[in-house]
Simulated scan of single mutants.
Amino acid sequence: MSGIKCCVCGWPGLEEDPAPMYDNHDICCCCGTQFGLEVRSVGDIAGVRREWLEEGAPWFYDDDDENDPADDDETTKEPNNWNKSAAEEQIKKAFG
């Protein structure tokens, strides 16, 4: 994993740091946030996070496409026992 945390969900798998401009168009494989689209400023983060959690915190990246080379990347794989509670714990760990 790259260690660069998504500022929405705390997943440490982003390729680029979304701050300070929030316009790199990176997509988090955990929450699906696209920086520069859903998040354009620091003020958008809480609303996007709340909406994702209200939807049950679904894992975004679909690794069912056997032709996708990203499927071999551990940063895209859904953790075992992923659910809303796991997402909330991840956020708490990442941001306090």
Rank of each mutant, 00 (worst) to 15 (best):
W82S: 08
H25P: 04
W82I: 12
G10Y: 09
E78W: 05
L37K: 15
I27S: 07
G56W: 06
E54M: 11
E38Q: 04
S85V: 07
E55N: 11
D72R: 01
E78C: 14
M21N: 14
W52I: 03
N80G: 09
D68N: 07
G36S: 15
T33K: 12
T75F: 02
A57Y: 10
C31W: 09
D73R: 05
T75P: 00
I27M: 11
W82A: 09
L37M: 15
D68C: 10
D23V: 08
Q90F: 09
A70R: 08
C29R: 07
L37N: 14
P58R: 04
N81V: 01
I91S: 02
D23C: 10
E51R: 15
E38P: 01
R49V: 00
A19T: 02
E88D: 01
E55Q: 12
G36V: 14
G13I: 11
A87K: 01
A19F: 02
M21E: 15
D65L: 13
V48Y: 07
D71S: 06
S41W: 08
T33G: 11
K77W: 00
I91R: 03
I45A: 06
C28N: 11
L37V: 15
Y61Q: 08
Q90C: 14
D17I: 10
E74Q: 12
G32Q: 09
C29I: 02
N67K: 11
L53N: 01
L14G: 11
S85D: 15
D26F: 15
E89V: 07
G36W: 14
H25C: 10
F60M: 06
E78R: 09
Q90S: 13
N83A: 03
E88Q: 01
P69K: 01
E89D: 12
E51D: 13
G32I: 08
A57H: 09
L14T: 09
W59T: 08
G13V: 12
D73K: 00
F35W: 15
D71W: 04
V42W: 01
G47L: 08
E78M: 15
Y61I: 04
S41V: 03
E66C: 13
D71N: 14
V42N: 07
N67T: 04
D44S: 10
G32C: 09
K93A: 13
A70V: 01
F35L: 12
E66Q: 14
L53S: 04
I91E: 03
P20I: 01
D72F: 07
N80T: 08
G56C: 06
V42A: 15
I27T: 14
K77C: 00
D71P: 00
T33R: 10
K84E: 03
W11A: 13
G36A: 14
A87H: 03
E15Q: 11
E66F: 08
G47Y: 03
D63K: 10
G13P: 13
V48D: 10
D62G: 06
R49L: 06
E15Y: 13
I27G: 07
I45Y: 02
E88G: 01
N80V: 00
